[in-house]
């Protein structure tokens, strides 16, 4: 095993890691706001991938051009989910909240299979394709673009939350709903905004993934599973923790698959998660 292969594994792990990070950031944002885990997050991603696929298949629109449209679509989906499902169960027991989002996931997956069959689909000849060779290290161009897109998306999210007034209002709502409400922040609209942004994050990731990954109704499951682990590993509600955990997971997946056994790569991630959580029950950056 040469040095190049290991470096290549590290870099492709990093590239995937940023995609995981953006998916997890959306999840984490929603959780931080209202302590609800969106178990339909993977299905949101699947919907975003399908919207990119159909825009390409029907109108020849490349996913990179379709990105703003798909992101908006997903934001609308997040908004609809908030007002249709989440708002009525904000005060329900945690179990009812878990079940409601699981039910939504089952529904969306079945809907996708019903409308578009369980076939695996791919977008052929996207705008960016092929691979580059940097000193003996081969990297797929779509992966690089996806990763860069996710980094930009994450940076935008971070700046929005820390630098704008609306972002600060979001943070205030996450910290103390009652106090924020007394300060004149429309907390209900903040929740809706949180769902829009959370869904938009996973929407961006989904569109970028669709340039090099299969699109099928169950695609969200594996990504969502890693995103839950990333969110719990980073600490529920911590967006920065989600970034770090996402990158860590990407690295571990790629290196573990290369050095030990590809069929066990998910197991390494799970083991790391369990080990961290047993020592630090609130995750790496979690507030308890």
């Amino acid at each position: 095993m040469t040095k190049e292969i290991i470096i290549q594994a590290i870099i492709s792990g990093l590239l995937m890691g940023f995609v995981y990070a953006l998916i997890a950031a959306g999840l984490s944002l929603i959780f931080g706001l209202m302590e609800i885990v969106n178990f339909a997050h993977g299905e949101f991603m699947m919907m975003s991938m399908y919207s990119a696929f159909w825009l390409w298949a029907l109108f020849g629109l490349d996913p990179l051009y379709a990105l703003p449209l798909c992101t908006m679509l997903l934001a609308l989906m997040g908004l609809a989910t908030h007002y249709g499902i989440i708002r009525p169960i904000l005060r329900a027991p945690m179990l009812a909240q878990i079940c409601a989002t699981f039910g939504l996931a089952v529904f969306l997956r079945a809907l996708a299979q019903f409308l578009w069959t369980p076939d695996f689909r791919t977008i052929q000849h996207p705008l960016v394709e092929g691979r580059v060779d940097i000193m003996g290290i081969y990297l797929g161009l779509p992966q690089i673009v996806a990763s860069a897109g996710c980094i930009v998306g994450f940076a935008a999210l971070y700046l929005f939350i820390t630098r704008t007034e609306t972002g600060l209002a979001l943070q205030a709502t996450a910290q103390d709903r009652e106090a924020a409400s007394l300060m004149g922040i429309p907390t209900d609209r903040m929740y809706a905004l949180g769902w829009m942004i959370g869904a938009a994050c996973v929407g961006v990731a989904g569109v970028l993934l669709s340039t090099f990954y299969f699109v099928f109704p169950e695609v969200g499951l594996q990504f969502a599973l890693l995103a839950y682990v990333a969110v719990a590993l980073g600490g529920f509600g911590s967006i920065f923790g989600a970034l770090l955990a996402g990158v860590l997971i990407g690295l571990l997946e790629s290196l573990g698959g290369l050095l030990i056994d590809p069929s066990f790569k998910v197991l390494f991630i799970f083991t790391l998660y369990l080990a961290v959580v047993f020592m630090r029950p609130q995750g790496l950056f979690g507030r308890f």
């Binding site: 499902i85 169960i89 009812a96 409601a100 996931a105």
Partner: peptide, 21 residues
């Protein structure tokens, strides 16, 4: 080969959670 049953099932669960937690 349709999945109408699963769609109904998912929708039913969501409705129960909303109206009868």
């Amino acid at each position: 080969g349709g999945t109408v049953d699963l769609m109904l099932y998912g929708a039913l669960i969501v409705l129960i959670c909303i109206f009868r937690p």
